[in-house]
């Protein structure tokens, strides 16, 4: 039997890796991938807690998180395509037209 704490530590490490990716990488697609890593870490937490409390709520919330993440990835990638067409670049620092 594996203690709940082990699953939570794995989830924390994955979340930290995802957050590091969002801050450190300068490529729009890699930033979106890091966001997906964070969402997965949260899913793991939900399912682990749901299993420990013996209810389905964890799995159901995970199901909704997966659906919302799919929708968000689709719209995010559409925006990335639009941005790339405009500027021929995937670097977030290239989209600074509003700055003085």
């Amino acid at each position: 039997m594996i203690p709940l704490g082990h699953y939570l530590i794995v989830s924390a490490i994955l979340f930290a890796i995802g957050a590091a990716g969002v801050f450190l990488r300068r490529n729009l697609i890699t930033i979106l991938l890091s966001i997906e890593i964070m969402l997965n870490a949260v899913n793991l937490s939900f399912v682990a807690f749901g299993r420990q409390l013996g209810s389905f709520d964890g799995q159901i919330i995970t199901f909704f998180v997966i659906a919302v993440a799919a929708a968000e990835a689709a719209v995010g990638l559409a925006i990335v395509i639009g941005l790339y067409r405009h500027r021929e670049s995937l670097n977030p620092d290239a989209f600074t037209l509003l700055k003085w």
Binding site: P3, L4, L8, A16, Q52
Partner: peptide, 22 residues
């Protein structure tokens, strides 16, 4: 951040119980 997360998660109640208890 990682140490804080780990500390926060581990000091929750019932964390040492094996998953499959209830």
């Amino acid at each position: 951040l990682v140490l804080q997360l780990a500390w926060a998660l581990l000091s929750a109640t019932g964390v040492d119980a094996p998953v499959a208890s209830r």
